[in-house]
Design a protein around this nucleic acid. Structure first.
Length: 496
RNA sequence: GCCCCCAUCGUCUAGGGGACUAGGACGUAGCCCUUUCAAGGCUAAGACCGGGGUUCGAAUCCCCGUGGGGGUACCA
């Protein structure tokens, strides 16, 4: 099985592309075939070199490696359509010679005017056929004379075109509703409709998985291939992704608004936010595909084993970022401590903190069940790496407790910590429990005082283990500061 | 306008004539566990778009309607 992913380098790689690439990749791996990366850059005007770079990074991050492509080469190159111009021209001329295509000399202005007219009369918006009947000799003469031209496919005016999609079955189109699509632009470069059909043939692509937005031009593609006397690949049209509301495709406005609220369909953003690629893959794989009525957790290896075209859905799917978070958390937890630690490190260092391997390895298990994305790490561990911490006095006193009691708790804690050889679970957990019992307080309240004093935040990883990482000296210093603050609060209150 | 695709809980989906009292997951609510927050466990609410057929029997097959989506470029 030979499959390809043919992105056009015009924008940032997003979810839709990622899924198409993924499914293609899975099929290739599953069958021991090849996954081809082909850059479809036939539109000079929209070409963006940054986009190609982003594409490569995104695919690599997701773990989708290709067997043939512009960077790795292969037996069927070049893998960049702009470098295959002559081939397309040759095939286009073949189509002209066989009467399946024709030269068209209509100017954009004329065509535009025609469209306006058709729109006014509520007619189908289609090429009027002006140059359809110009004789080949005359057309060739005009071309030779240097007149600007495009090459259009000559769509039959009668009959139907039947095509077969693997998940939808047969689809039939009335030829009369189809257009004489342009195959070669006036700049001499083929458009998608010709270029990818030609490439798929010469690159021996056996299965085409592409977005559903190609169904309207599906009959054109089939006819181009048939006119050239080639065999069609198996066609699979993937359903589209809709915005979270389910109302329509994602627009530029939508994606920008999304990024404002910390969500994004761009792979590079997910990378930056610290989503594990495994989670993104699992999530996106399940948008439009399912395995059975129970299984939802998949690693790449499992997807390679279990993916199948038959289980693909034709229904468009609304993007659900909550579900991405779910899969993200699942895969964070599925990572080994060492692996997760390695991925967490850059997020800690990006904050300007230095962390030794031993500390990192002890810290990671504390974080593992709590993380959705890795960019949350700094907020969890900041108090461990900062030299000082400044809790608000009022925050030191738990709800439903008075300042004097909080002070007593803090003092009690101080004694416990000072007496402990090291701040380990075995050394201090029981004494803390005893303290709570003695003072007739809930364990949570007692911990709250300690937590606020040591971390200056109400939510932390397990406190005892965190204090062990912080070190006895810093911990006690902070607790003492807390005691002072509470003393001031208590004294101040009694002064009034 | 015209062409095409699609239609099960809010969302992603299982289901391909009887196994359906319609299953799972996310989210939501509650409970358990618990030093905070999570994680984990349990429970609950929640869907077959409408109408006609076909059939002994339809979520499943057909038709119409409605709704949603896509296309309608010298973009892909």
């Amino acid at each position: 099985m030979r499959v390809r992913f043919g992105p056009s380098p015009t924008g940032i790689t997003h979810l839709g592309s990622a899924r198409t690439a993924l499914y293609n990749y899975l099929l290739a791996k599953q069958t021991g075939g090849q996954f081809i990366l082909r850059i479809e850059d036939t539109d000079q005007k929209r070409y963006d070199p940054a986009a190609e770079n982003d594409l490569i990074n995104s695919l690599k991050w997701l773990g989708l490696s290709w067997d043939e492509g512009p960077d790795v080469g292969g037996d069927y190159g070049p893998y960049r359509q702009s470098e295959r111009k002559a081939l397309y021209q040759e095939m286009a001329e073949k189509l002209v010679a066989s009467g399946d295509a024709f030269y068209c000399f209509c100017s954009k202005e004329e065509l535009d005017a025609q469209r306006q007219e058709q729109k006014r009369n509520n007619q189908h918006l289609r090429y009027a056929g002006t140059c359809r009947h110009i004789s080949l000799q005359e057309a060739q003469a005009r071309v030779a004379a240097g007149e600007e031209y495009v090459i259009r496919f000559k769509m039959p005016k009668e009959g139907t075109t039947k095509v077969v999609d693997s998940i939808r079955g047969e689809i039939e189109f009335e030829n009369a509703t189809l257009d004489d699509y342009i195959l070669v632009k006036s700049d001499g470069l083929a458009v998608y409709h010709l270029a990818t059909m030609v490439d798929d043939h010469f690159m021996k692509v056996t299965h085409v998985l592409r977005g559903e937005e190609w169904i309207p031009t599906f009959p054109l593609h089939a006819r181009v291939i048939r006119a050239l006397g080639w065999e069609e690949p198996e066609w699979v049209h993937l359903s589209l992704f809709l915005k979270p509301s389910g109302k329509g495709k994602m627009s530029k406005r939508d994606t920008e608004a999304m990024q404002q609220s910390g969500e994004s369909i761009f792979i590079r953003d997910m990378m930056a936010m610290g989503y594990p690629p495994e989670g993104v893959i699992n999530w996106v794989a399940l948008m439009g595909w399912s395995y059975d009525d129970q299984t939802e957790f998949f690693t790449m290896d499992e997807l390679i084993k279990k993916f199948s075209i038959e289980k693909l859905s034709a229904k468009n799917a609304a993007i659900d970022f909550k579900k991405l978070d779910h899969f993200s958390g699942l895969h964070v937890r599925n990572l080994s401590t060492e692996e997760l630690a390695g991925r967490i490190r850059p997020f800690i260092e990006a904050e300007g903190y230095r962390v030794d391997e031993d500390t990192l390895l002890k810290l990671t298990p504390l974080l593992q069940p709590r993380l959705i994305t890795l960019d949350e790490v700094p907020n969890w561990v900041r108090f461990i790496f900062e030299d000082e911490v400044t809790p608000g006095v009022e925050d030191l006193v738990p709800n439903g407790m008075d300042a004097a009691t909080a002070l007593a708790v803090a003092k009690g804690m101080l004694i416990i910590l000072e007496e402990a050889r090291a701040l380990t679970h075995e050394n201090i957990e029981q004494p803390i429990r005893d303290l709570a019992v003695e003072m007739d307080l809930k364990l949570g309240q007692v911990f709250h005082v300690l937590r606020m004093a040591v971390a200056a935040q109400a939510v932390t990883p397990p406190l005892i283990e965190s204090m062990e990482l912080l070190g006895k000296e810093k911990t006690i210093k902070r607790l003492k500061d807390g005691v002072h603050l509470l003393e001031e609060l208590v004294n101040g209150a009694s002064d009034e």
